[in-house]
Structures are given as C-alpha cells and as structure tokens.
C-alpha cells in the first residue's frame, strides 16, 4: 500500500512536471468550449455558405451541443488520452528508470496499479472539466431540461475510457515499445467497431457505451439496454488489469 501511494505520487508529479497534465486539461477544456460553439455556429455557417438558397434550419438546441460534446470526446478525446499515455511503461522500461526502483524492492503489483490509477484519475479530471464547461455554456444558452439521462450518458463514456485504459495497460505489459502499445490499443477499438456491425452483439459491445450517448439523451435508447455493455466493460477492465499484473510479475527486465 505504501509503495502504491509513493509511486502514485511520483506518477502525478511526473504528469505535472512533464506538462502532460497541463496539455490534457487545456485540450479538454477547449473541447468543452468548442462543443456548444460548434452547435451554435453550424446554422450560421451553413447559412453564409448557401446564400442563394434559403434553407430552413432548425434553431440549435441543447441537444446539439451535447451531440458535439459526445462526438468530440469519444473520438478526439480518447485519441489524445491514448497518445499521451501510450508510453506509460515503454519509456520507463527503455530508459531503465523502473529497474532501479524494482531493485529497491518496489512491488511490481504497485507499479501496475498506481499507473492505472494515475491514468484513470487524469481521464476522470479531464472529462469532468470538459463536462462542467459544456454544461455551463449549454445551460446558459439553451434550456437544458429537455435533455434526459445526461449524467448516466457521461458515466457510460467515462467507463468506456476506463475500459480503453485497461486495454492500453495490458498492451503496454504485453509488447515492448510505445508504437506496439498504441497499435494494439487502436486495433482493439477497430475490432469493437467491426463487431458493432453485427446487431446481435450490440447489447454486449463496450463500444455501445460511447456510441449511443445522444440517443440516451433523447430517450430513444433505453438505459437498461446498456446494462450488459456496462457489465462487460467493467468485467473486462478488471480482467485486463489483473492479467497485466500477472504478466508484469513474470516479465524479464
């Protein structure tokens, strides 16, 4: 436990001092502002582009802002997270900084758990910041009351991120090097995308957590329909983290 806390402290310090946390917070804050801005500006821009035609566009509403929010985070946000954390083990192993700690008796379980905790922590903080900013703008500009299941929908997206991070951690212990780790994580997302074409497994696919968020807000997708995906994502996350620990304990350094 003391190893876990000491190493978590080191990870957080590293995040701040290498500007990773700063960059991520600012990028997510920018997403938070850009989502309502895009929603508000899209009709204006379209209008300006198609001057000769008068297209009757519906007035933007809160749901448009949230649509942008979920699209931005599920795509760009996740990509940023994966790229920033892609080298979480690889850089330490290739530079040899971890070896010194391990020879001092640092428990390998603590290494894996503290690294995972750190990643989940930063992801949570960034998502929260982005959410609060979008929420503030959206409620200021539009009535927010027609939006349903908002917190649940954001929770699903958060859980999807937590799940992706467990895949990232697993890839990092399995393959040496950052590019292999990124490739494997990206590959697993592609696999989920391919599976999602098949409607029968949609119910269980963790990817559903990041693809039906807007439908949840409009109540066209039932909350209970996502329970299986939540379960699968949670169980798989635990399995991936546990496997990472087992693999890392056996790894020759």
């Amino acid at each position: 436990m003391s190893h876990y806390l000491a190493f978590l402290k080191k990870e957080v310090m590293e995040g701040f001092r290498t500007y990773k946390v700063l960059i991520m917070v600012l990028v997510f804050a920018a997403f938070g502002i850009l989502s309502p801005l895009t929603a508000k500006m899209t009709p204006v821009l379209l209008d300006a582009l198609a001057e000769e035609f008068t297209i009757s566009l519906p007035e933007p509403a809160a749901i448009d802002s949230w649509t942008q929010f979920f699209k931005n985070i599920a795509q760009m946000g996740i990509i940023v997270v994966v790229i920033v954390f892609g080298g979480i083990l690889a850089t330490e192993l290739s530079r040899g900084t971890l070896i010194n700690m391990l020879t001092k008796g640092l428990s390998r379980v603590a290494v894996i758990l503290s690294k995972y905790t750190y990643m989940v922590l930063i992801w949570t903080v960034c998502l929260l910041i982005c959410f609060i900013i979008t929420f503030a703008y959206t409620s200021y500009l539009w009535p927010n009351d027609e939006v349903r299941n908002l917190v649940f929908s954001v929770f699903c997206l958060w859980l999807f991120g937590v799940f992706i991070l467990s895949i990232l951690l697993f890839s990092a212990t399995l393959v040496r090097g950052m590019s292999g780790c990124l490739l494997m994580t990206g590959g697993s997302i592609v696999v989920m995308l391919i599976i999602s074409i098949w409607p029968a497994v949609e119910k269980y696919n963790p990817l559903s957590l990041a693809s039906f968020n807007v439908q949840l807000l409009m109540d066209t997708y039932k909350v209970t329909d996502l329970f299986w995906s939540i379960g699968v994502a949670a169980v798989l996350s635990v399995i991936f983290v546990t496997t990472s620990i087992i693999l890392f304990r056996k790894k020759q350094l």
């Binding site: 960059i23 600012l26 804050a29 920018a30 502002i33 850009l34 309502p36 801005l37 508000k40 500006m41 703008y137 200021y140």
Partner: peptide
Amino acid sequence: DYWIFLLPLALIQLGL
C-alpha cells in the same frame, strides 16, 4: 455574439 466562447479559447491558446 461569440466573445463568451472566443475569449476563453484565446486564453487557452495564449496560456499554452
């Protein structure tokens, strides 16, 4: 119309 968006975005850019 949009200063409320553009100002914080500009601040983030400037900060970075």
